[in-house]
Amino acid sequence: MNQLILTADQQDCLQELINVAMGQASDQLARYLDTFVHLKVPSIEQVSSEHLSQSLHQEEQAVAVVSQGFFGYEGIRGEALLVYQPKDSDRLADLLGYEPDELSVEEQIIDLSSILTTTFLNVFASQIDNQMSYSAPRLLASSQSSISEHIEQQQFTWDAALKVKITYQVTDYSFNCDMILLIPSAAIINITTVIDRILEAF
């Protein structure tokens, strides 16, 4: 099932939309967090549901995963996973501008996830003349074993998904995390419709 859903042109276009959104999101985040936020060039790949847990296993060091659903017009929807590594969480409260005793580590992680996800996707949505709504972020798992367990327990109702991985780096706080956007196949078709429209306009 390795046939690509996106053509090379479509993939380039999506990559470009994401790059622009990353630039703007990084700018907004830097202003809000008062520190530089680097977003590393994403990888875009297609995964099948049976390979998803395998592909997420590569994040095996992860200590926490936060999931947040997003949905916009024209059937564009998906799920954003924010994946944190063990040493990432030391100075989160500081980064977010809270006092450490004002909120638990879990809340810090969820808060940051929501900020990263919604800022990026809002900008991305405006690139394609869309508007996103979000479900409340949820901490899926906060320990290594339970993440793979969690993923393995999922009964996926789709067979292919687009996986977009973006790494956030905040060097002043020696912090980084990965945002993985998973877009189920039905929504990919909707995205390609939008992309084709943009490509035609050029």
Binding site: Q28, Y32, S114, I115, T118, N122
Partner: peptide
């Protein structure tokens, strides 16, 4: 309301123009 926390939470909504959330599981 925890004033400082609340102000910072709303600051993210105002500055980033994005929604934010608070779940009973954390608070």
């Amino acid at each position: 309301l925890p004033r400082r926390w609340f102000e910072r939470k709303l600051a993210s909504v105002i500055q980033l123009n994005t929604p934010n959330f608070c779940s009973w599981e954390q608070r």
